[in-house]
């Protein structure tokens, strides 16, 4: 697919706006429809589009496998970390009211951080799934390559 100029140009033009839209959905979830789950999928879609048009190799250069696995784990750590932070500040697990002086501000901070964690994990999982399926035949014969 990497020889079709229409696809290449369209992918180059669309790549950044898709990510910007994903970030909008991610951080505007308090005010409109959206949130971490949807934003994660949209941002992953941008990288998958890139990998589909420019090849799996180029996609892996953009998001290496280690970064991908790190994203998976980091999202869950951020989410759990916000919960533990609530406990450290004399609240309950995942109690956002204590994150700031004002409970409303605390809720805003907590929700944005938690949604960010969800977004990271979902982006990571979607990318990992795509690369696992699309690169399955190579990895089966070249397991753990690059080490």
């Amino acid at each position: 697919m990497d020889n079709n100029p229409i696809l290449r140009v369209a992918a180059k033009i669309l790549f950044a706006p898709i990510i910007v839209f994903g970030l909008y959905v991610q951080f505007h979830g308090d005010y409109g429809p959206g949130g971490g789950f949807q934003a994660g999928v949209i941002i992953a879609a941008a990288f998958i589009l890139h990998a589909l048009i420019f090849g799996l190799e180029a996609g892996r250069r953009l998001v290496p496998a280690w970064a991908n696995v790190a994203m998976l784990a980091l999202g869950v750590i951020i989410y759990g970390g916000v919960g533990v932070a609530g406990m450290a500040l004399d609240g309950l697990f995942l109690d956002y009211n204590v994150l700031a002086d004002d409970p409303s501000t605390g809720q805003h901070i907590g929700i944005i951080l938690v949604e960010f964690g969800v977004g990271l994990t979902v982006t990571g999982v979607m990318l990992a799934l795509f690369h696992a399926f699309a690169g399955f035949s190579e990895s089966r014969f070249d397991a753990g390559g690059g080490e």
Binding site: G35, G75, Y79, G80, G110
Partner: peptide
């Protein structure tokens, strides 16, 4: 002051469920 109730329920009131989902 969060107009989207879906987000409040998902991330705050039912934050523990969403943690499980993640």
């Amino acid at each position: 002051h969060i107009p989207n109730v879906v987000t409040t329920v998902l991330a705050s009131y039912r934050g523990f469920d969403t943690f499980g989902e993640t």
